[in-house]
């Protein structure tokens, strides 16, 4: 009877409208615990399963994939850098070699040219000396020749002077002997 009374009161309170119904303190309403736990277990089990089987493998797959890709790219870049450095070293070596060769070539050419011009100069000098000697010989010959002519001129001149002075040409032997006397 009392219970029925209580139920009626409860029903009346509810009929009053939700505003002031006696809700107690919901978090401590133990009769709701069973249902909450049931659904928490169901939903959390589903969440855990989906997370560990579906979401996380996918997510960590993406992250791992990126990490390995970056690592691979970095390795590649490092390899390329090494190769570039090697190429640089080879180039430097080739350059040094070429420089050395060029220097040697230049030296050689310079020496050759110097020798050539030296030889040419010597030939020219020899030629000039020869021509100088020839010229000197010619001059000496001409001089001797001219000196030979002097006696003739002196004889002729002396004959002419005597002819003018005496009116008669002296005997050639007299002039010759006089010239011999002067020369002696």
């Amino acid at each position: 009877m009392a219970q029925a009374q209580a139920q009626t009161t409860h029903a009346e309170t509810q009929a009053h409208g939700g505003a002031h119904e006696d809700v107690g303190f919901p978090p401590f309403a133990t009769e709701t615990y069973g249902g909450q736990l049931l659904w928490l277990v169901i939903t959390f089990a589903v969440l855990y399963t989906l997370m560990s089987k579906l979401v996380l493998p996918r997510l960590s797959g993406i992250i791992e994939n990126r990490r390995s890709m970056i690592a691979r790219d970095l390795d590649e870049a490092a390899a390329m850098k090494t190769r570039a450095e090697e190429a640089g070293a080879t180039y430097e070596k080739a350059l040094a070699e070429a420089k050395g060769r060029a220097q040697a070539l230049a030296q050689e050419t310079r020496a050759k040219l110097a020798a050539e011009s030296d030889a040419r100069r010597k030939a020219l000098e020899a030629d000039l000396n020869k021509r100088l000697a020839e010229s000197e010989a010619t001059i000496a010959a001409r001089k001797a020749e001219a000196m030979g002519h002097v006696r003739g001129i002196a004889r002729d001149t002396a004959s002419a002077i005597i002819e003018r002075l005496t009116g008669k040409a002296p005997a050639p032997q007299t002039v010759e002997s006089a010239l011999d006397q002067i020369n002696a």
Partner: peptide
């Protein structure tokens, strides 16, 4: 025993899993 609490538990799981699946669908680098 399905209550408003259960509804929001299910909702939270749906939002989490759905959100992650949607966000990672492209698997972009």
């Amino acid at each position: 025993n399905f209550t408003n609490s259960s509804l929001f538990m299910v909702g939270a799981v749906a939002v989490i899993v759905g959100g992650f699946m949607l966000a990672t669908r492209k698997r972009a680098v």
